[in-house]
Design a protein around this nucleic acid. Structure first.
Lengths: 175, 175
DNA sequence: TCATGCATGTAAGAGGTTACATGATTCG
DNA sequence: CGAATCATGTAACCTCTTACATGCATGA
């Protein structure tokens, strides 16, 4: 019976399959690979790492430069990860205040929703542009993991869909 | 200076603008209107209602049938809501375990990701069908709030985008 | 040398989930 | 009469966020 880990810990173990990483690295790695679709704060990361070390799922290595402490996944860690994965991805957690604004639009001061939507459109368009730039860059390399590309593709798809959704909103709402 | 409320409380106050509702009603209302884009559990709702009552943002009414206790929004409640809205929608909170699965696909047992993706496709397709059904029904009514339709439209857009994303995944991942 | 980035962590509190407990009402 | 649904709530726990504190290394 392996230790039952939570999704946050599991994601860290997942990244550690590629080799030892420090807490700092893990935050950066998550940011770069799943970005907005899997939020992690450093507080969470350091706590989970400490906890997992206690349970023998990872082992801290020698402190390197600037106190960097790389963690290595253990066999128990790999087992715990596989165990988590076998339980399937859980429910998504989604809280979109923007959608709440739209839903409650009737009760907002006139103009506020329009402003907010315009801002969001700009934001999503900028994000989309970033993603497309990254895809281009990745395309020029060979030897990339198709899974990372697929995740990026999801970001592109959703950003694009969101922009189009805003553009097609009826004038009563968005004009 | 009004009481600074959190987004959860704000959403409840938003719904209460339409008239008194019980905790139970509020959960149902949220479910029906923003559904997956604004999660609320009843524990949260009852807690926030009690807290808001303490602060005078809502007032509990007479207990009706089956202990139903309707809450009415007060002027202070409306002010607090307006205040919250003026601060703008905050950052989105998104945690999609599915995306985590995709990102970490390299480290999952072969076949697991395929299975999970197939399940998700079915799930999203079913959701899309539901949404389309609801839109049809709403279309046959007159006098609906365009904001609710817009929210529904977002659900349709995203579900559709997700299904297409899965369908277009390269065979190394999804086949 | 000073700003920026790397790197760790703690403490406190807010927010969210799960399990439990209770009871009325309605419908078949 | 029994099952399902309506309806409220508590307690315990887990998770997440924010603010704070510290210090090394690098490059302009």
């Amino acid at each position: 019976m392996t230790t039952e880990i939570n999704a946050t810990a599991a994601s860290l173990l997942g990244f550690l399959h590629d080799g030892p990483l420090t807490g700092w690295d893990l935050v950066a790695r998550a940011e770069q690979t799943i970005g907005p679709f899997w939020s992690l704060t450093k507080s969470q990361v350091y706590r989970e790492l400490a906890l997992m070390a206690e349970h023998g799922l990872v082992t801290p290595g020698e402190t390197g430069r600037r106190d960097a402490k790389p963690y290595t996944i253990t066999d128990a860690g790999r087992a715990a990860f596989a165990d988590w994965a076998a339980r399937g991805p859980g429910e998504a957690t989604i809280r979109l205040p923007l959608l709440l604004f739209v839903t409650l639009g009737k009760h907002l001061e006139p103009g506020l929703l329009r402003t907010v939507l315009a801002e969001q459109r700009a934001h999503q368009a900028a994000l989309l542009k970033d993603y497309l730039g990254i895809r281009q860059m990745l395309g020029e390399l060979d030897e990339q993991d198709p899974h990372l590309l697929a995740t990026l593709e999801y970001g592109i798809t959703v950003a694009r869909a969101t922009v189009r959704w805003i553009d097609r909103l009826p004038p009563e709402i968005a004009s």
